[in-house]
């Protein structure tokens, strides 16, 4: 268990280091940053001043190691546009993105688990095929478009939910539904497959032979085993959702980390862009590690000797 953890930690660290390098290269792709920060109307003197002020006149490698060194101590630099510390900006916006991600995950699980169980119990019936069709429909749904359609129907025509902003919990319902759509297909399929496999296993036959009730067999014995991969994938899906929320945050004007990144891309505010890429990647790596840990805790078979 311990060596497994150490190995995972080393890989996680190497992944973070690689992403850091890639994020740095990414923001240098456009060539001369000082010119793009200064804007089209800047004079040569302005550009020079900016180059000096932000340390862009130093060798690229020096800039890189400076950034890495600072990032390791939690200092992600300063935003050009917001004139604030990047770490502060991200910390301010993170609660919105996390609330959105968690709302999406809860909705996705609330839909996928019952659907997956139903489909497994009624395998190869019309119900099962309908559930699989729902998964396919969810997979084909363009999230930003679904968001707009919900705004028109639930927001404007029915007036049930607010259209944009972050004022109250109601503001997170529509974006949460939209975000959930991206995870529902995978989670439903996995629950269904896991339940079908569990229902065919020996311990379920034993439970049946003991005369346990159907509900007890399904929920206590089968689901507990089928849930192991689902829980793990749910953590990974949360990582994907946080990374993918940029589109939904923009549609619903939710001022989270994705929105921050989107604004910064438009303003050439590269310290923010590279920091958001890094932070989202680190969160994803942490969540996949959490998933592996949960797997090991929930399923003693995976822990090894």
């Amino acid at each position: 268990m311990l060596s497994f953890l150490t190995r995972r930690l080393i890989v996680a660290f190497l992944v973070a280091a690689t992403v850091m390098t890639l994020a740095f290269i990414l923001t240098r792709l456009s060539g001369d940053l000082a010119t793009s920060i200064a804007g089209p109307n800047a004079t040569e003197a302005d550009i020079d001043a900016i180059r000096k002020a932000y340390g862009l006149d130093r060798p690229v490698l020096a800039q890189f190691f400076d950034w890495v060194g600072r990032a390791l101590t939690g200092d992600l630099g300063e935003s050009y546009f917001f004139k604030a510390r990047v770490s502060t900006l991200i910390a301010e916006r993170m609660p919105v993105t996390f609330t959105l991600g968690l709302t999406g995950l809860v909705i996705a699980l609330a839909v996928s688990l019952p659907l997956g169980i139903l489909a497994a119990v009624r395998e190869n019936t019309t119900l099962d095929r309908c559930v699989q069709l729902v998964a396919l429909l969810g997979q084909a749904m363009p999230s930003f478009w679904l968001g707009l359609i919900l705004m028109i129907t639930l927001g404007l025509q029915l007036g049930w939910l607010p259209i944009s902003g972050t004022g109250s919990w109601q503001h997170f319902v529509m974006p949460g539904i939209v975000l959930a759509f991206s995870a529902i297909p995978a989670l439903t399929r996995l629950t269904r497959a896991g339940m079908i496999q569990a229902m065919g296993s020996d311990y379920i036959r034993t439970a049946r032979a003991k005369g346990l009730s159907r509900a007890s067999i399904l929920l206590k014995h089968a689901l507990r085993n089928a849930a192991i991969p689902v829980v793990a994938i749910a953590a990974v899906q949360l990582g994907f959702m946080l990374g993918g929320s940029i589109v939904i945050e923009q549609v619903f004007a939710l001022h989270g980390v994705g929105y921050l990144a989107w604004e910064s891309i438009g303003k050439n505010d590269f310290p923010v862009v590279q920091a958001v890429v890094l932070v989202l990647a680190v969160i994803y790596v942490a969540l996949t590690m959490l998933a592996d840990l949960m797997n090991a805790v929930l399923d003693p078979r995976l822990r090894g000797p």
Partner: peptide, 11 residues
């Protein structure tokens, strides 16, 4: 897999 696709493509 750890790199957020939409964000990097946008950037």
């Amino acid at each position: 897999l750890s790199i957020p696709v939409v964000l990097v493509a946008l950037a």
